[in-house]
Nucleic acid binder design. Structure first.
Length: 370
DNA sequence: ATGAATGTGGCTAGATTAGG
DNA sequence: CCTAATCTAGCCACATTCAT
C-alpha cells in the first residue's frame, strides 16, 4: 500500500514531431550502444509503463496509470515478436513524422504486413504494439502521427469551421449526419448555441433522432459512436466539452452491463490506454435507460435474461476502481443483477415512435440523470 | 429482382491460458 | 505475481449468399 501511495501519476505527452523523433533516436542509440559493449554484448530490453490493473488508479477525473514499468526483453522466449513490432511501429512513426504525414492503425498494419508479414497474423497485434510504443515513448498516439479512424457521426446545433475555410452546419444536413473524421484535431473551430450534448449508443436510435430533428426541439448536439466508443469520437466529445464547458453531456445507452461500460469508457477512459485516458474523458451523465426507466416503460415481453457474460461484465464493473466512488452507478448495476433481465433502448418504441423524444426531453427537464 | 439471412472485417474492451 | 498470445463479445458497415 505504502509503495503504491508513493507512485506518481503518469501521462503521455502531446509532444511535437521533432521531440518524438529525438526520443526514438535516443532509444535507438541506447539499443546500439548495448550491442557494442565490449565483452558484454547484450540486447537492451525496452522499458514500458505497465498497463496492468495494479498500476492503475482512478479518481473523479477518470482512470490513470502510475509509473510502474516492466521490461520487454527480446531474449526472453515468446517476447521477440512483440519486441520487434514495437520497433517496427516506432520506425514507421519516425518516417511519418519526418515527412509530416499521419496514418491510421489500419495503414500501419498493412505497412507491416507488406514488409514483415511473417511477424503478424492480425491487426490486434499491431494495435497493441502501438500501445506499447506509447508506453515506451510516453507520447500520445496523435503525436506519433497515428490517427484513430472513426465510425462515429455528429448532428445538431454545431457549426464546424475547417482549417481550410469550409464551414459545415450540422443542423442543416437534411436526413444525413456529419461523419466524425479521423483527423478531427485541434485545427477546427466549433460554434454552437446548444445547451446539451447527447451521446447515443446505437446508430438506429441516433437516426431516429436525426429524422425527427430532435435538436430543433431541444437545443443540443447529438453524436453516436455506433457501439463501443472509438478514440476519434471520444476525442471529439472531449474537445466539445472543453470548448463548451457549460453544456451538459448525456448518454443514452441500452439497459445492460455493456451500456454502463460504454458510459464508463467515455467518462473514465480505459486502463489499456491509461496513459492517454485523461485526454479523452469528459463528464458524461447517465440519462437512460436506467433501472426505473426500464421498469416503468419497457413492456415485460421486451426483457431478456442476462447472459453469463453480462453477469461477468457487471461484476467486473462493480469491482473496478473507477466505480468505487460512484455509488449510484453501482446501485444501478446491482439492481440490474438482482432483476436478472436486460432491455434495449428500442423497447421504448412500444409506446410509439414519438415516445423516444418525449422520454429524453422529460428526463432532461426533470434533471433525471446521474 | 428483391429482400432476408449470413459472413467478414474493423473497432473497442476484457477474459483466458500458457509460461516464466 | 507478471506478460504474450489468443479469444470472446458487442457494435456497426458492407458484401455475399439464399430463398422467394
Amino acid at each position: 500500500m505504502a509503495m503504491e501511495a508513493r507512485r506518481s501519476m503518469c501521462l503521455a505527452d502531446d509532444a511535437d514531431p521533432s521531440e518524438v523523433r529525438s526520443r526514438i533516436e535516443c532509444l535507438m542509440k541506447l539499443f546500439l550502444k548495448s550491442l557494442m559493449v565490449e565483452n558484454d554484448v547484450a540486447i537492451k530490453p525496452l522499458s514500458l509503463i505497465s498497463r496492468s490493473e495494479r498500476n492503475a488508479g482512478a479518481d473523479e477525473e477518470g482512470v490513470y496509470l502510475m509509473d510502474a514499468t516492466y521490461e520487454k526483453d527480446f531474449t526472453v522466449r515468446n517476447s521477440g515478436k512483440s519486441f520487434f513490432l514495437v520497433w517496427k511501429v516506432m520506425q514507421i512513426c519516425y518516417q511519418l513524422l519526418g515527412i509530416g504525414k499521419q496514418a491510421t492503425q489500419r495503414e500501419i498494419f498493412y505497412n507491416i504486413l507488406s514488409t514483415s508479414s511473417s511477424y503478424i497474423t492480425s491487426q490486434n497485434q499491431v494495435n497493441s504494439a502501438i500501445q506499447d510504443a506509447v508506453a515506451v515513448l510516453l507520447c500520445t498516439r496523435r503525436s506519433l502521427g497515428i490517427l484513430a479512424s472513426s465510425k462515429g457521426a455528429v448532428v445538431g446545433r454545431l457549426v464546424i469551421k475547417e482549417h481550410g475555410g469550409d464551414t459545415v452546419d450540422c443542423s442543416n444536413l437534411g436526413s444525413s449526419s456529419y461523419p466524425i473524421s479521423a483527423d478531427m484535431n485541434m485545427k477546427q473551430h466549433f460554434y454552437s448555441d446548444a445547451r446539451y450534448i447527447l451521446v447515443i449508443e446505437k446508430d438506429a436510435i441516433f437516426q431516429r433522432l436525426v429524422e425527427e430533428r430532435f435538436f430543433l426541439k431541444v437545443p443540443c448536439i447529438i453524436m453516436t459512436a455506433k457501439g463501443f466508443p472509438d478514440l476519434a469520437s471520444r476525442a471529439l466529445l472531449h474537445r466539445l466539452h472543453q470548448e463548451f464547458p457549460s453544456m451538459l453531456i448525456f448518454a443514452l445507452v441500452d439497459w445492460n452491463p455493456a451500456g454502463l461500460a460504454i458510459i464508463c469508457t467515455y467518462r473514465f477512459g480505459s486502463i489499456r490506454m491509461g496513459l492517454e485516458a485523461p485526454r479523452y474523458v469528459c463528464d458524461v451523465k447517465w440519462l437512460g435507460l436506467r433501472n426505473r426507466d426500464a421498469l416503468t416503460y419497457v413492456p415485460a415481453t421486451a426483457f431478456t435474461s442476462l447472459t453469463d457474460r453480462d453477469m461477468t461484465q457487471a461484476r467486473s464493473l462493480l469491482a473496478s476502481k473507477m466505480l468505487q466512488n460512484h455509488k449510484q452507478y453501482k446501485q444501478e448495476i446491482l439492481e440490474m443483477l438482482t432483476f436478472g433481465q436486460k432491455a434495449e433502448i428500442e423497447a421504448l418504441y412500444a409506446h410509439g415512435y414519438e415516445f423516444l423524444a418525449k422520454f429524453i426531453t422529460k428526463k432532461i427537464v426533470r434533471q433525471d440523470f446521474i
